[in-house]
């Protein structure tokens, strides 16, 4: 029998794979008010983070099944909601304070990179991947989340007008879809549009941040939010001149990882609850998901199926 092979590359899907660590450990978020608090505030932050970072490392070691775990650390600076100071001024102070606490920041990320990184509109891409958790009774007729810009973990309270048409007219409670007897209902604003400009919300960008760390996003099959090595020189005077993701430590383990752990002050709890709701309703790149599953399987590392369960947190007391 004659066998012929004919292929067209444009007709076949492709997903490039990424090197993966066991754990991506986030040592904090920096907002303008943190920086305005001076080096002392950063010092207190890193001092609070230190023991929990150690604990996260110990946990990752226990999970690595006797092997030395690959752990990379990262730090996120908000240059999206407020632009403050300059990288040349901020980054050296930040690194010095981390070092003083005995912490090494391997990768430095800018929050605006979670919106658009190297011309790739990451946030918009993730918005196109939201698949809402269907409340019971959903049979295929639902407006896409893209129209409203809000994402909930259940069924909202019906609007007043709709209620007026009900004979009882009684208030209807919202309902969390995955409730354990009682609901913890949350409705998350993903973005707002003003004067033709879309501003992504903090939880939405934080969800994108988690997905990039987990290595589960691609753009047309290619990796996104790729780390660039830091040359030995100083830091630029404009945030836009700083790479969205900068590798500060040349010997660091890969940025992307099977799991993430973020050590944050407890004021971030509501934001990260919202992040979990977004992660739980995002369909990540299927090829990337498969690659992570196959690799972790070969390595004998347990990775939860559910993407939201791959992110963990430590909330230390403080503001």
């Amino acid at each position: 029998m004659t066998d012929a092979v004919f292929r067209e590359t444009a007709a076949e899907p492709l997903t490039r794979s990424l090197p993966l660590s066991h754990l991506s450990l986030e040592l904090g978020h920096l907002y303008m008010e943190d920086f305005e608090g001076g080096p002392e505030r950063l010092r207190r932050h890193f001092e609070s983070v230190k023991p929990w970072a150690e604990a996260a490392r110990a946990d990752a070691t226990a999970r690595a099944g006797g092997k030395r775990p690959r752990i990379s650390t990262c730090f996120l600076i908000d240059d999206y909601f407020t632009r403050f100071s300059t990288p040349a001024e901020v980054v050296p102070v930040l690194l010095a304070e981390a070092e003083r606490a005995g912490l090494v920041i391997d990768y430095l990320a800018r929050e605006s990179g979670c919106a658009v990184a190297d011309k790739v509109p990451l946030a918009e891409s993730v918005a196109g991947r939201l698949v809402e958790s269907p409340p019971p009774g959903s049979y295929g007729l639902r407006p896409p989340v893209g129209q409203t810009g809000w994402l909930a973990n259940g069924v909202r309270t019906p609007a007043l007008r709709a209620q007026a048409m009900r004979r009882s007219g009684a208030w209807q409670p919202p309902q969390e879809t995955a409730a354990h007897r009682h609901s913890v209902f949350l409705d998350v604003e993903l973005w707002d549009d003003k004067d033709g400009h879309r501003t992504w919300s903090c939880p939405f960008l934080a969800a994108v941040w988690q997905l990039t760390r987990l290595g589960l996003l691609r753009n047309e099959g290619e990796p996104v939010f790729v780390a660039r090595a830091h040359s030995s020189g100083g830091f630029p005077s404009e945030w836009d001149q700083l790479a969205p993701l900068l590798q500060l430590n040349a010997t660091a383990a890969p940025f992307n990882a099977y799991r993430t752990c973020s050590v944050l002050p407890s004021r971030f709890l509501p934001v990260e609850h919202a992040v979990r709701i977004i992660l739980d309703q995002t369909e990540v790149d299927a090829g990337a998901l498969r690659q992570v599953a196959e690799r972790s399987d070969r390595e004998g590392v347990a990775v939860p199926d559910s993407v939201a369960d791959r992110a963990s947190y430590v909330f230390y007391p403080g503001w």
Partner: peptide, 30 residues
């Protein structure tokens, strides 16, 4: 182009054919 980050697969042989990325819809019903 149903998704900003996924290619439309395009094929020219043996005829012109383009296929969108898959999108998902959640359901919970009978």
């Amino acid at each position: 182009r149903l998704r900003a980050d996924e290619r439309v697969l395009a094929s020219e042989r043996p005829n012109l054919y383009a296929l969108s990325p898959d999108t998902l819809m959640g359901v919970d019903c009978a």
